[in-house]
Amino acid sequence: MSKFAVLIQVNLKTILRDRILHAILGAVVVGLLLVPAISSFSMRQVQELAISLALSGISFFLLVMAILLGSSSIWRDVEQRHTTSVLTLPLSRTTYVLAKFAAIAIFLLGTGILLGICSIPLISVAAASYPSDQPILWGNLVVALCGDIAKSMLIAAMALLLSSISTSFYLPFFGSVVLYLCGSASQEVYEYVTGEFVRAMHPLVIVIIKSVYCLLPNLAAFNYKVQAVYALPIPFEQIAWSVGYGTLYVAMILVLAVLTFNRRVLG
């Protein structure tokens, strides 16, 4: 097996053997099992609520895992001196950083798919109890799930970048939480400042907001929940844009992480 593959394997084992993960995963599964029960509280939107609860639950879990895993990765290896033993082997730091990301990404993909499969029967049960006037477009649900997985991967990459610079938990954790919040709101804010009701704002402020918008990750690009819940059509083109955007953005972040970590002096 290649060095890269073995490093990924080692990182995955480290992720999967963590007790905290087991606890969080257990809580999410219990939460998902409650979906049919909670959805039945809605009067007319049982199916819609079930879909939106399941997707949001999975999305939230993936987000929490992405932030926790990403922001406890590289700096912790440095602090616990794992890098002393691993990076003196003939392994490049590039391989090391990319394997860290790959392991987190594989974990997010795997658990995302797993939880997605788990929620199929739960949504079906809820939908059957009060048929909606809309069909369930499973294809849309898959797109929405993939969007959530992609979003969590992007957050993980951000957290990884921050943890490659940091020497403690604070910067990567709070940094990625803040980036997540900003990234979720950026599209709204952008639409607001480019909308027709903005006259009071200084043009300079608008320029600043627009450039920050271009810099920040646009997490709205990965949000297909509305389309999944209300069975709206999703043009293929839209998915292609999201994929292109996500790939480029993550690639940029990772290259940045590799560059910064390669320059870091590990005493």
Binding site: V10, K13, T14, R17, D18, Q80, R81, H82, S85, T88
Partner: peptide, 12 residues
């Protein structure tokens, strides 16, 4: 190479 007071990934 043997580092001083080595620390390895302890889940392994």
């Amino acid at each position: 190479y043997l580092p001083e007071n080595p620390a390895f990934y302890d889940f392994l």
